[in-house]
């Protein structure tokens, strides 16, 4: 079944078509949400909310039959709305102690696989991870992040720098443990 036919069946409310559409796009879309939400079930709940919007507004979608970019935008917007509603970007759940900066070679970080990247990301507090994800994965500028999260541009810059520091530190800690002699 072509994408156009699938979309057409989804618009008519065909549940089998909706399931096929959902299963087809889920693998690419969930990681977009998982960059922001550490808990998988929470990420799936956010994704489902976004997909509901998608199914409700598929009728208005009149593009070239390649809805991936449109879907990613809807998912991103929904995730941002949830972050804003819960004020997660500004909540600090635990005070951070002083962590001395560590030196980690860029090549070591660059060669991580997706699972390890997500683990490191999820070790960050929400208010840092969200800025890091918006900047690195979604390509937003500091001004755009500041606007979306209602923070200052300087705060966005500081949070990105702080997230980088902590990611290096977490990587260093995890690898020190793994490499330590038994």
């Amino acid at each position: 079944m072509t994408t156009e036919l699938l979309i057409s069946a989804c618009i008519k409310g065909n549940h089998r078509a909706q399931e096929a559409f959902y299963r087809m796009h889920f693998p690419k879309l969930l990681p977009i949400v998982q960059r922001h939400f550490a808990d998988r079930s929470e990420a799936v709940a956010v994704l489902n909310q976004a997909m509901l919007r998608v199914f409700q507004s598929l009728r208005e979608y009149q593009e070239d039959g390649k809805p991936e970019a449109w879907l990613a935008t809807v998912i991103r917007r929904t995730a941002l709305n949830v972050i804003r509603d819960k004020d997660r970007a500004n909540r600090r759940f635990q005070p951070e102690g002083f962590v001395p900066p560590v030196s980690v070679p860029s090549s070591a970080l660059a060669n991580l696989n997706a699972e390890d990247i997500l683990k490191l990301l999820h070790a960050l507090p929400d208010y840092l991870r969200i800025v890091f994800s918006l900047s690195v994965f979604d390509g937003l500028s500091h001004a755009e992040i500041a606007h979306e999260l209602k923070i200052t541009v300087a705060a966005s810059r500081w949070r990105l720098a702080r997230a980088r520091e902590l990611l290096r530190t977490h990587y260093h800690v995890v690898n020190s443990i793994n490499e330590s002699p038994l």
Binding site: Y22, L30, S106, A110, L112, A114, I117, V136, R164
Partner: peptide
């Protein structure tokens, strides 16, 4: 962005999660 951040973006873009 740094090199490792660009690499992370590419890695996660390829990453898929089965429903």
């Amino acid at each position: 962005h740094t090199d490792w951040e660009n690499r992370w973006r590419e890695t996660l873009a390829e990453h898929q999660s089965i429903p």
